[in-house]
């Protein structure tokens, strides 16, 4: 049985101050909270890795203490199969995808916005051309294209993130285009033109900044999740960061043999890191979407 409260005493509703939280359900807030926490942790870890604020040297091998359990001898998460501190390696692993991921985001958002605005605002032939390009970029599976680039050029993570960014652009473009169509239906754009606003102002200030901000943030979160997935998958396959430099993907791969022998942790720890981090970005995007975007 579900309880419904039908008449709330008027004093309880203080609309203005509670407008954000009123719309958001508990679940959405939890999602956003968890996601923001993850983002914060990733950022901090990136900085920690960049400045080497790590509890242990990630390369230091402690042969007496191989595959130790967590909390043994000052190793927060234990050690891997070479006695190296897992926690430090995990933190350092963020270096592998953070900046490249940001690059992918920048490319995806800028290219996507460009295509989306073209398709939505101009309409007609330009729309058809932009849609064609979108479909084109969607036609090749991302992993396949990346392998092609790796084979033709070199397995550089920045090349790869360039591809990730470009292939993530169609999704962004579609969202922006739909938003513009929605705004057109509401005569928003028509009125802006009618009162004489110049085109760049309409596009940049009114459409993008005021109306598409939330889309861009949400897509950025999704793009980062994608970047992490790709980077870890590729380094797992052997194409990204190489040993001994840690990446979550190559850590899983290196620990795989030991997993078969029953030592689950060295492989599972980075896998869980991937899981919880990607989950954070997904949930952040979902929660923000529900609160900021979805029309009831």
């Amino acid at each position: 049985m579900k309880t419904k409260y039908l008449h709330k005493p008027l004093s309880q509703t203080n609309a203005k101050s509670r407008s954000f939280f009123k719309k958001a359900s508990t679940r959405d807030l939890l999602y956003i909270g968890y996601g923001s926490l993850v983002v914060l942790l990733v950022l901090l870890s990136y900085l920690a890795g960049a400045f080497s604020w790590l509890p242990h040297d990630p390369d230091e091998m402690n042969l007496d203490l191989m595959m130790a359990d967590p909390f043994v001898a000052g190793h927060l998460l234990g050690t891997d199969f070479m006695g190296r501190d897992l926690f430090s390696r995990l933190v350092l692993g963020i270096q592998a995808y953070f900046i490249p991921g940001l690059m992918a985001i920048v490319i995806a958002l800028s290219l996507g916005t460009f295509l989306g605005v073209l398709a939505g605002y101009e309409g007609g032939k330009v729309d058809r051309a932009a849609t064609y390009i979108n479909n084109l970029l969607d036609s090749i599976p991302r992993m396949v294209l990346i392998l092609l680039v790796v084979a033709l050029f070199k397995p550089d993570v920045y090349y790869i993130m360039f591809v990730v960014g470009v292939t993530a652009a169609p999704v962004v473009a579609l969202q922006i285009k739909n938003k513009i169509i929605y705004l057109k239906q509401k005569n928003f754009i028509e009125s802006a033109i009618a009162i004489g606003l110049p085109k760049p102002t309409i596009i940049f200030k009114h459409i993008l900044w005021h109306n598409c901000r939330s889309i861009l943030i949400i897509q950025a979160s999704l793009c980062m999740a994608e970047a992490i997935l790709i980077e870890t998958s590729l380094s797992y396959l052997g194409f990204g960061v190489q040993e001994p430099i840690p990446s979550w993907g190559n850590m899983v791969q290196a620990g795989a043999n030991y997993l078969m022998q029953g030592h689950l942790w060295p492989s599972t720890a980075p896998a869980l890191a991937i899981l919880f981090t990607i989950l954070g970005f997904y949930l952040l995007a979902d929660g923000l979407n529900k609160v900021l975007e979805e029309k009831q």
């Binding site: 049985m1 309880t3 419904k4 039908l6 008449h7």
Partner: peptide, 17 residues
Amino acid sequence: VQLTHENGQIVQVKKDL
């Protein structure tokens, strides 16, 4: 349905939809 009345008005409903 379970109703809760107050001042002749229904203020709460529990219904097994």
